[in-house]
Design a protein around this nucleic acid. Sequence first.
DNA 1: CGAGCTGTTGAGGCTTCTCAAAGAAAGTGG
DNA 2: CCACTTTCTTTGAGAAGCCTCAACAGCTCG
Lengths: 241, 241
Amino acid sequence: MSQERVFSVVDPYMQPNARTMQTSESASAEARNGMSRQFSRHKQFPAHGVIFFEGDPASNIYEVASGSVMLYKLLPDGRRQVVEILGPGDLFGVPAGEVYDVSAETLTETLVHLMTRKEAENSDSMQEHMKKCLVSQVQNLHEHAVLLGRKSAHERVASFLMRFVPSRGDFTCIGPQDDVDESVVTLNMTRQEIADFLGLTIETVSRVLSDMKRRKVITMEKQDRIRVMNVCGLCHLTGKY
Amino acid sequence: MSQERVFSVVDPYMQPNARTMQTSESASAEARNGMSRQFSRHKQFPAHGVIFFEGDPASNIYEVASGSVMLYKLLPDGRRQVVEILGPGDLFGVPAGEVYDVSAETLTETLVHLMTRKEAENSDSMQEHMKKCLVSQVQNLHEHAVLLGRKSAHERVASFLMRFVPSRGDFTCIGPQDDVDESVVTLNMTRQEIADFLGLTIETVSRVLSDMKRRKVITMEKQDRIRVMNVCGLCHLTGKY
DNA sequence: CGAGCTGTTGAGGCTTCTCAAAGAAAGTGG
DNA sequence: CCACTTTCTTTGAGAAGCCTCAACAGCTCG
């Protein structure tokens, strides 16, 4: 449940060779969203590194440049709910009050852009970008509420796997392109993180995956690398169609 | 599960005496958020009236002026998840794409302000207001994800009831002011709507409420009017403390 | 190679759901 | 205004799904 919380923040301004990485990453991120110019600073985090905790003073606004980040909340008895999983281009740390309402931790090695609240407030294009991100965040959270409130364990795991199959599973889905309807997904998450995202236990996640293996819907190349043998079949297990 | 979907929209511009109501409501709403001037039109809905459906073209942006609105999503087999409950001042219908991602239905008789997407985009103060609403919406959805993913039926119902106890239950809570730590809450929701919000069945909601009655945490004045006999006691059942 | 994680599998229990029936409340028409 | 219908809510019994606890397997790393 609780991870070792290793603070291993690398500040590019303090590290001799981090700056080169910063500029190269910066360029590719600009290509994605054109917002990077707005961000004054960059930080590199290792996998499973803590970016901030729920309750910390909300001083910075972050954007994922590369890698992935999860946002989660804890109940006092240790129960954890992962509320969002973010990838490149996603913003986080936009606070309603004075403190962050969630904790943020990386899943993989991650580079984030950051800026102060002040800087964000003074940039119109940043405000526009933030609004766009917030709207799609709300939409994702709506979808996730359906998953948590109304879906079975099988449907949750199926929905989770479909997240990582590119251009399949949503209304734009064009169906299988080849005879073989396969796709390999890399989760970059432990069973505990998946369980805490899906509102299940690790045992249930494990059992459902084993069951899907038995039914030949998936095979496992590594613990966190799953080959979906039948994307359409998996999609129908999500409960969405 | 599925309600009768009665479209009984009252357009103030079409109704002889709706205009007077519009202006009076408009004034009080302005006092609340100063945004009403931005909204060009108003609409009155009866209790349990449909405002729009998931998948409808997202033509308007709405603000609750008075009353309350729920946003929900349906799975094809009829399972429903109520994802948000909104009150005066809350915005909804801000779309990420071309269509609404949720359905919107009133809980009580409700007056909404509305404006087109174009109008919203051309107003800076509106953009600012939207951003504020979206940020607190995201925060509420995080909290709700914890409820749906990690809380027991008792904790969910307790959390739900605490929503309606003013100035209690959050970090600003000042504790009971009198010897009697009571509060009367009016739900304005059917058991089905509550269940669909909490990710439970009506039977479970009913059983939990009965259990709370038995334990003298609450008494019922009417089906949807509940007297909380011990606010602090109820608060400790939420799992949050 | 053994220690320490992480993940898998099994057995049993608990919570919540499903199905069913009866009771309470609200709406309808005479 | 009252009987009737319809809808909503409560309660019970049994079933199902997921969780808890426990043991084992597999991978990683010193």
